[in-house]
Simulated scan of single mutants.
Amino acid sequence: MTTSNVKTALSVNLNKIALLRNSRDGNYPSVVHHAQVCIDAGADGITVHPRPDQRHIRPQDARDLSALLKQHPALEFNIEGNPFAGPADNGYPGFVELVTELCPHQATLVPDSDDQLTSDHGFDLRISGESLKPIIQALKERGIRVSLFMDPDVEQIALAKEVGADRIELYTGPYAAAWGSDQLEDIYQLHHAAAQYAADIGLGLNAGHDLNLDNLGKYATIPSLLEVSIGHALTVDSLAMGMSNAVAAYREVLQQ
């Protein structure tokens, strides 16, 4: 395997803490409290994905976390979501509107629809590229780094550069699903080649989806990997290990 001396940052996605909170009235467990636990344990950043149906992270959570992260200027706040999601009657202000209000360090644009259980594919920029261009430009003018959620397809990655993205986030769901199978190496090599191509054309590289303590170590050997965003598996591991220990365990894998 090829290794890289690029430090890979761990951004903890707190959606599942909010999902648990939303199963009851009140604010328990607190998203902000658990963000602070992650920060104290050494996380490099916090990620949230506020969807229009508010199934987990709500706009006020994003505002509260933005205020918290301003107390930790060395850490990053990443808000991800569908850039075409507009305002909703339930108080959701629209994705671009919320990101423009809060000006996080990074906005990760994801092509997910309201009826998707979770993000499960990257952008097809042959279809949405022209619509994304003015959104990307407007966010960058606010000083927000823009990352596009992408499959490991070099033709699509080339288009990501053309529409103005700063980074891509490679969708790692198929890699995780192939763990332990004879398909794994082919998928890993596909991601490796896509990562190298992204670096060659000047795009930063993030990755995320279903990465866990078992499969992260191999994936982290991909060169120039700047950031992984991990939520579901880290939250599950926290049930057995405690959140501080889980964050430490993921950081240890990334530092090896």
Rank of each mutant, 00 (worst) to 15 (best):
S119C: 11
L109I: 02
Q137S: 15
F95K: 02
Q256D: 13
Q60L: 14
R55D: 10
S131C: 12
S229T: 10
S131D: 13
Q189W: 13
L234C: 06
R251G: 07
Q256I: 13
M150L: 09
G122K: 00
L19H: 08
D44I: 01
G164C: 08
A199T: 13
T235C: 14
A194S: 07
N22I: 11
R58D: 08
I127D: 09
Q256L: 14
D186R: 15
V247H: 03
S181N: 12
I57D: 05
A249H: 08
E76C: 10
V31E: 01
C103Y: 01
I168V: 15
D153M: 06
I57L: 10
M1Q: 10
P93T: 09
R126K: 11
D40S: 15
L225E: 00
G204F: 00
L132F: 09
E97Q: 14
I79R: 03
V247K: 00
N82G: 07
L190T: 15
Y197P: 02
E227S: 08
L211C: 04
D53G: 12
N82V: 08
V32C: 07
G94E: 09
N22K: 11
S30Y: 12
L234W: 02
V37I: 14
D40P: 01
A165W: 00
N27C: 15
H34L: 14
R142C: 01
L211W: 04
D186E: 15
G42Q: 02
L117P: 06
V12N: 03
V163T: 01
T172A: 07
H232S: 10
E76V: 10
Y175W: 11
L213C: 07
Y197W: 11
L216D: 02
L226G: 09
N78R: 05
G42S: 07
L68T: 03
D153G: 07
L159A: 04
Y197Q: 08
V247D: 01
Q36I: 10
S224I: 05
V146A: 00
E130I: 09
R145N: 10
I230S: 03
A194N: 03
T100N: 00
A178H: 08
T47M: 10
T118Y: 14
N206R: 05
V253M: 05
V96N: 06
D151Q: 09
T47S: 13
D112K: 09
V236S: 12
Y175F: 15
H121I: 09
S4T: 12
N78W: 00
L159G: 00
Q196P: 06
M241P: 02
S181V: 10
N90T: 11
A220R: 05
V154G: 00
Q183T: 13
I136T: 03
I157W: 01
L20D: 04
N15G: 08
A193F: 12
S11K: 04
I168N: 04
L117M: 14
Q255F: 14
Q196S: 13
A138N: 14
P50I: 05
L75M: 11
A160E: 05
V48F: 03
L213W: 04
S4V: 06
L102I: 01
S147G: 11
D237I: 07
V163G: 03
D151E: 12
E162K: 15
L20I: 12
Q106P: 04
A138H: 10
Y250P: 02
G204H: 04
D115P: 08
G242C: 13
P50A: 09
Y219V: 01
L20N: 02
Q156V: 06
V253L: 04
T108Y: 05
